[in-house]
Computed example of a mutant assay.
Amino acid sequence: MKVLVIYTHPNHDSLCYSFLQKILQGAGENPKVKEVQVLDLYEEGFNPLLVFNQEKRRRDMHRDPDLAKYREQLLWADKIVLVYPIWWGRPPAMLLGYMDQMFAANFAYRDGKGHFAEGLLKGKSAVCVSTMKGPANYPLLWLHNAHKILMKRALFGFVGIKKVKFFEFGNMESPKGKQAEKLEKVYRYFRAVG
């Protein structure tokens, strides 16, 4: 199994970075994991802005040479892991900008006959590891699970990725947030996942 970890947090002293380290530790001890690549969007200086004009058309985004390396990473990976905070009920703008550009037509999906597109990233799986300051049930009770619906249905399901696992951790700025337990849970998952 080849694992691509997309890390989206501007601070390497963050809890998200600690989750990244636990993912790498667990995957490193997992005999089923052949190779791991990490894409740190902030460190990479990834440009999340969509630009469309006379030279750069939306319909050609799937072959934009500036994004070729990132397309190769997504095609290479069997498992795509996203690590990010939840800000304002959704992933950071940096990650949304990555998704806008990378999950493009004729790369991640193709318009089908009828109402639904054909997902071109079938056979892959995804894991979302996210942290938030608010209570763990906030996204479910107050936002009607908008974050999970966005990630599972609107993004991954649309491009053919049906198997999506969530680690959505709340109360992460509280001294009672059980951060060590949650870090251990993520580590154990990646040590054993197949």
Rank of each mutant, 00 (worst) to 15 (best):
P85T: 09
V3G: 01
G194N: 15
L120Y: 07
L120I: 10
L24A: 04
P139H: 06
M132N: 03
L121V: 11
F116K: 14
W87H: 10
E72R: 12
A117V: 14
Y138N: 06
N106I: 01
H147A: 12
E168C: 11
E35A: 03
K113R: 13
K148S: 07
Y187H: 14
A105R: 13
N171Y: 12
G194E: 14
L4D: 02
I80N: 02
A180G: 06
H9A: 09
P65W: 02
L150H: 08
K178G: 07
D64E: 15
W87R: 07
P65S: 08
M172F: 05
M99P: 01
P48Q: 12
N137Q: 11
Y109T: 08
R63P: 00
K178N: 15
G134T: 12
Q54T: 13
A146C: 04
W76G: 10
K79T: 15
G97C: 10
R57L: 13
P65L: 05
L143C: 05
C16F: 02
G194T: 07
G194A: 13
W76S: 07
D64I: 13
K152W: 00
A93E: 10
R63Q: 15
L140Y: 02
Q179N: 08
P92T: 14
G89H: 06
E184F: 02
G112S: 06
M132I: 08
A27S: 14
E118K: 00
A136S: 13
V127C: 02
F166N: 05
A136G: 01
S125E: 15
K185D: 11
R90E: 14
F167R: 02
V36P: 00
G123S: 05
L140V: 08
H9Y: 09
S125I: 03
A154K: 06
D40L: 06
S174T: 03
E181H: 09
F52I: 15
G28M: 07
K32W: 03
S125P: 01
K162W: 02
L49K: 00
E181M: 09
A146T: 09
R188T: 01
G123M: 10
T131L: 06
A68K: 15
L24T: 07
F103G: 05
D64P: 12
A126Q: 07
Q54L: 13
G119L: 08
Y189T: 09
Q101T: 04
P85V: 09
Y7I: 05
L95I: 05
L24W: 04
C16I: 02
L140F: 04
D100P: 01
I6S: 08
V81Y: 01
V186R: 01
K34H: 12
W76M: 05
W88K: 01
M99V: 15
S125A: 12
R71Q: 12
I86H: 00
K2G: 05
Y17N: 15
Q21V: 08
K32H: 13
A154P: 00
P31Y: 03
Y187L: 12
V81Q: 03
V159N: 02
Y7G: 09
N171W: 12
L121E: 03
N30A: 08
Y17A: 09
F166M: 04
A27C: 05
F169R: 05
E184N: 14
Y138P: 00
V38N: 04
N30P: 07
A77K: 10
F107T: 13
L15N: 14
V83M: 06
